[in-house]
Design a binder for these strands. Structure first.
Lengths: 106, 106
DNA sequence: TATTTGTGCAACCAATTAGTTTCATATAAT
DNA sequence: ATTATATGAAACTAATTGGTTGCACAAATA
């Protein structure tokens, strides 16, 4: 199935998984301990996160370590960039206003 | 209903609406022209986007102009920031490696 | 070899979602 | 005053989602 990063990060449990995995790679069992839901539920989240490449799998015997694929996270940042221009411009406008006020006070 | 920014941007139609509205405030009718689905479907998306404060409404007679609330967009950026540190560190590590290679070549 | 452990997958289910059609209402135009 | 337009809300529906339980299977351990 074609998975989308935005759809993946929409779920709060998945964002929590991302946060946990960001500091260190973890196995499904270890991750599941942090949640109320079953290991299988967590496993399904891991599948979704892996399918959209937000997570990478590292096999070690029968264990699978899931780690964050930071590169894919940048995709969200890339999407935000077009809007960043807008809010930075807002700041510039504000700067101008402040500068004007300042010069008038002199 | 309590609406979440991440859930709001998960839908591709809603992201398209955000993009359209980013350049200029638009009415539901004007927006609906850009999509295959009905005006009411677009209206429901607008409701979700407004509820999570990604959009603001500007009333003008019987028309309602929807405009982007850039401030709320920054919430996503704020979430990303903790991961930005990680990918910037990766870059620094890479820089070190490149620097080492460079000095060896000399 | 027999058993335990770590994992993914399938089948099922309740809740949510994104769409539809049909309305009600307020403003604008004739 | 009547009609047309812009909009939101309600009721319904099909598809998707996030959860469950039960299973299969490979790797580690006894």
């Amino acid at each position: 199935m074609r998975r989308d990063v935005f759809q993946a990060i929409a779920d709060p449990t998945r964002r929590a998984i991302i946060l946990l995995v960001a500091s260190q790679a973890m196995t499904p069992n270890a991750l599941a301990e942090h949640f109320d839901s079953s290991r299988q539920a967590v496993s399904k989240h891991l599948r979704i996160l892996t399918e959209c490449e937000l997570l990478k799998q590292e096999y070690s015997g029968r264990e699978i370590y899931y780690e964050l694929n930071v590169t894919k996270m940048q995709e969200v940042d890339k999407w935000l960039e077009q809007y960043k221009k807008i809010w930075e411009n807002r700041f510039n406008e504000l700067d101008k206003v402040l500068a004007t006020i300042k010069s008038k006070k002199k």
